[in-house]
Amino acid sequence: MNISSEELILKAKNFTKENIKPIAKELDESNRCPKELFDPMRKLGFFRAQYPLEYGGYDMDYKSAFYILKEIAKGSAGISLLYVVHWMATDVLLKYGTESQKKKYLKDLVEGKKIAAYSISEATAGSDAAGIKTVAEKVENGWKINGTKYFVTNGGIADLYFVMCKTSPNKGAKGISLFIVDKETYGLDVTYYAEKMGFRSSATTNLVLKDCIVSEDNLLGKEDKGFEIVLDGLVGGRLGMSAIGIGIGEVALE
């Protein structure tokens, strides 16, 4: 499909006006993530903008993607946040994933057929991400993960969770790894749908992992090198949040 960034941004603007703004108040009042909009947004191509053609993307620059976020945020900031976090996970998979991981997951993420969550925070580790307590332990058939994640954006709607774990607990930030955990993994449980002050159309939950077994192939990047990968992914996330802020500011002025 050939489409210019200008055309895609215009589609986002029109979609927001026709499909998001009419239900924005209801979403905010009911603290609801509108799953019924996912398929139309996939078909319009909003997930794909900045990713390579070989993985189903449109090969646009990131600026175009952030303009899409800005337009969607004018209707509902929480729906824009869905993209920010999804793209953080997609970005690190594209940059650090093995060819087999990319073949298995990347095209579905780029096309929006699967949604990703980026799971870092815990009740006692927010800004101090290195203070997490979730542990991944090597076992015969891969890794066993135990812990509880807090304030997980896209929790409950995600198909894949990118989970930060301690793999060498005594090494601090230098003992952290990142794992891809499928929502169907035994022992993974989504709990507590958060009541928030803002971004209420964004699904935010806890994530409990109890003896979750993932294969060696689900380790993203090198063992104990996950902290740098996570921080790298946050760069795009922070820029995305800036785009959302600009959208909110513009619609307030309008």
Score class of each variant (00 low, 15 high):
residue 143 W to H: 03
residue 201 S to E: 08
residue 11 K to Y: 13
residue 184 E to R: 10
residue 73 A to V: 01
residue 40 P to K: 07
residue 90 T to E: 02
residue 8 L to V: 02
residue 155 G to I: 01
residue 11 K to I: 01
residue 203 A to K: 05
residue 88 M to K: 09
residue 160 L to E: 07
residue 247 G to F: 13
residue 72 I to S: 08
residue 141 N to Q: 12
residue 186 Y to K: 14
residue 56 G to E: 04
residue 76 S to V: 04
residue 247 G to L: 12
residue 60 M to C: 12
residue 20 I to E: 09
residue 112 G to D: 10
residue 230 V to D: 13
residue 58 Y to F: 13
residue 69 L to Q: 08
residue 249 G to R: 15
residue 50 Q to S: 12
residue 86 H to D: 12
residue 221 G to N: 07
residue 158 A to Y: 04
residue 177 S to D: 15
residue 27 L to A: 01
residue 1 M to L: 08
residue 206 N to S: 13
residue 79 I to Y: 10
residue 39 D to Y: 05
residue 150 Y to L: 00
residue 162 F to C: 10
residue 113 K to T: 08
residue 153 T to L: 10
residue 66 F to M: 15
residue 33 C to E: 05
residue 140 E to G: 13
residue 173 A to L: 08
residue 193 Y to P: 00
residue 70 K to Q: 15
residue 253 L to N: 14
residue 236 G to R: 13
residue 181 V to I: 13
residue 232 D to C: 02
residue 93 L to Y: 09
residue 95 K to P: 00
residue 39 D to S: 10
residue 119 S to C: 15
residue 143 W to N: 08
residue 228 E to S: 05
residue 97 G to T: 11
residue 181 V to C: 06
residue 73 A to M: 01
residue 243 A to E: 08
residue 52 P to K: 02
residue 33 C to K: 05
residue 173 A to W: 00
residue 172 G to D: 09
residue 229 I to C: 03
residue 51 Y to H: 12
residue 45 G to V: 08
residue 111 E to D: 11
residue 96 Y to F: 15
residue 148 T to P: 00
residue 199 F to W: 06
residue 4 S to F: 11
residue 253 L to R: 09
residue 209 L to Q: 02
residue 107 K to I: 01
residue 170 N to M: 10
residue 122 E to S: 04
residue 108 D to S: 15
residue 240 G to Q: 11
residue 192 Y to R: 05
residue 183 K to N: 05
residue 155 G to A: 13
residue 151 F to E: 10
residue 208 V to K: 07
residue 197 M to P: 05
residue 17 K to W: 02
residue 114 K to M: 03
residue 151 F to Q: 07
residue 63 K to A: 15
residue 164 M to L: 14
residue 232 D to H: 04
residue 152 V to C: 14
residue 186 Y to L: 15
residue 35 K to I: 15
residue 95 K to T: 11
residue 199 F to M: 11
residue 103 K to E: 12
residue 176 I to F: 06
residue 136 A to C: 06
residue 4 S to P: 00
residue 69 L to G: 13
residue 155 G to M: 04
residue 132 I to Q: 04
residue 70 K to S: 15
residue 249 G to I: 05
residue 252 A to M: 12
residue 1 M to C: 09
residue 192 Y to I: 09
residue 66 F to I: 10
residue 70 K to H: 05
residue 95 K to F: 01
residue 223 E to R: 00
residue 241 M to Q: 10
residue 130 A to S: 14
residue 202 S to D: 10
residue 60 M to T: 02
residue 248 I to W: 09
residue 146 N to Y: 06
residue 96 Y to W: 04
residue 103 K to Q: 10
residue 235 V to I: 14
residue 83 Y to E: 10
residue 75 G to R: 01
residue 123 A to P: 01
residue 234 L to N: 15
residue 242 S to K: 14
residue 61 D to Q: 11
residue 110 V to D: 12
residue 47 F to E: 12
residue 81 L to A: 13
residue 198 G to Y: 15
residue 237 G to D: 05
residue 178 L to F: 11
residue 104 K to P: 03
residue 247 G to M: 12
residue 235 V to E: 15
